[in-house]
């Protein structure tokens, strides 16, 4: 079926999303949205294998509860990208806001530039579902807080301001999953449940595989996996899978 082109100019999110849901029910799978300007919940709860292209800034909770499919945003995205998402891939050709990937248990977020606070909170792994967030720029505080699974990669490719790569309370309450940060992390910023580990061969293979896909998604920006991999990474893992196991008296 032909892609469905929607001009979202001045449309309330409710109207826009209703059209998408109705058209998905009719069998449409490819959507091209123009003039998107902060409309929320695009793709919310869609279980079909859709392909949504968004021109303009996507609003909060992009792809919330989505099961599969792909979303590409040719601009920035606001807060809550990939909230409680199950398996979609979201590519953002710009920045993304706060609490992205909260409770995400599958799928991928590829963000070209910076991301806000509280990224990947309570991300979790289940069997072959391993959520991945790759951020090209820098991140704010509470990166990977309560992280229970999955992979967080922070690249700092652009380094276009004085801020540190990542903010404070990095991985506070982390009890699963792994983070790779390209560059050094000030131990002062680490949550107390996180430990720094050396990368081994497996880590490099994994990074290479994930970054290859990332670079392909952003091929217009001249990114190269080898260039990116030249800089050292810091690997962060939880100290314990039971951080709060010993605080009780029986």
């Amino acid at each position: 079926m032909e892609p469905l082109v929607i001009d979202a100019k001045g449309m309330h999110y409710r109207e826009l999303n209703q059209i998408i849901r109705d058209k998905v029910a009719e069998g449409y799978r490819h959507f091209i949205l123009h003039n998107v300007n902060g409309q929320r919940y695009i793709g919310a709860g869609i279980m079909e294998d859709v392909f949504i292209e968004i021109h303009g800034v996507a609003g909060n909770d992009l792809g919330v509860f989505m099961k599969r499919g792909t979303i590409i945003v040719y601009d920035d995205a606001q807060d809550g990208v990939g909230n409680t998402m199950e398996g979609t891939k979201i590519v953002v050709h710009g920045m993304a806001g706060d609490v992205c990937g909260y409770g995400m248990r599958g799928g991928k977020l590829h963000i070209l530039r910076d991301i806000g606070y509280r990224t990947g909170i309570h991300m979790k792994t289940y069997k072959d579902m391993v959520p991945v967030i790759i951020v090209g720029g820098k991140a704010g505080d509470f990166f990977g807080e309560y992280m229970a699974g999955g992979i967080l990669i922070l690249l700092n490719l652009w380094d276009d301001d004085d801020r540190p790569i990542v903010g404070s309370y990095l991985g506070t309450g982390m009890h699963g999953g792994v983070m790779y940060i390209r560059g050094e992390v000030d131990p002062h910023n680490l949550g107390k449940e996180v430990g720094i580990k050396e990368l081994d061969e497996k880590d490099f293979l994994l990074l290479k595989k994930l970054l290859k896909e990332y670079c392909e998604d952003f091929k217009d920006y001249g990114l190269s996996v080898d260039e990116i991999m030249k800089s050292p990474f810091t690997k962060l893992v939880p100290v314990s899978t039971r951080p709060y196991g010993k605080i009780y008296a029986y």
Partner: peptide, 17 residues
């Protein structure tokens, strides 16, 4: 719950969003 066997299931006090 869709979490691995044997891991703690932590529900933080607030919803962080």
């Amino acid at each position: 719950r869709m979490i691995p066997v044997g891991t703690d299931a932590l529900s933080p006090a607030p919803h962080h969003d």
